[in-house]
Simulated scan of single mutants.
Amino acid sequence: MTRTPEEAVRGLWRTLSARDYDGIADWVTDDCIYLDMPVGPALAARGPADIAKRLQVGWGGLSAYENHDGLLLSDADGNVMYEHTETWSFPTGEVFTLAFVTVHRVRDGRVCLWKDYWDYGAIMNNAPASWVEGLATADTSWVYDATDEV
């Protein structure tokens, strides 16, 4: 099946909104690099399994997560910019919505590069202390240094 870059990005984010970690492999390439730009390319993840592990560090302890669609722009080379928001709900009652701009590169109908841009301070100022403290002991087997690749 051939997908447009826009279909690949929207499909990936529908899968993410459902927190369907196994389904990520349907939307990203085996060599896809995912990174959060506020923390840099030295803490990237590569490939569907490690991307899923990386996402579970942030979302695993949430009671609810929802992606909200926004503006999506693409070019003829498969580059897609997606402005969207995410609502994070914690079991301790905190809820906040975080603004994102995500840059994707799509190859053969699947995302091969995914860079998230967001406000680091917004998470640190709104997440409960227990979530922030949990980052120190989180699984980091997924860490891939993409410094020379992005």
Rank of each mutant, 00 (worst) to 15 (best):
I24T: 01
S141C: 12
T2I: 14
V57F: 10
T15H: 05
T92I: 09
V80I: 07
G121I: 03
L71W: 12
G11V: 10
R14V: 04
V28H: 02
G23N: 04
L12A: 08
G47W: 06
G93S: 10
L72E: 08
L72H: 08
D36W: 01
Q56H: 13
Y34H: 13
H68E: 15
E66Q: 05
G109N: 00
A25N: 08
R10G: 12
D31T: 13
L73F: 13
V28W: 01
S74N: 05
P41H: 13
Y34E: 11
G58S: 15
W59F: 15
D30S: 15
R3Q: 03
V150D: 00
Y21W: 15
S74K: 02
V95D: 08
P5R: 05
T87H: 00
Y21F: 15
A49W: 04
P128K: 06
A76P: 06
I33P: 01
L16S: 00
G60L: 14
T87Q: 05
T102H: 05
W142D: 06
A25S: 14
S141L: 11
W142E: 06
L71C: 13
L16V: 00
A122V: 14
E66Y: 00
H104L: 05
H104I: 01
Y144C: 09
R10F: 15
V28D: 02
V101F: 10
A122W: 12
G78N: 05
V150A: 02
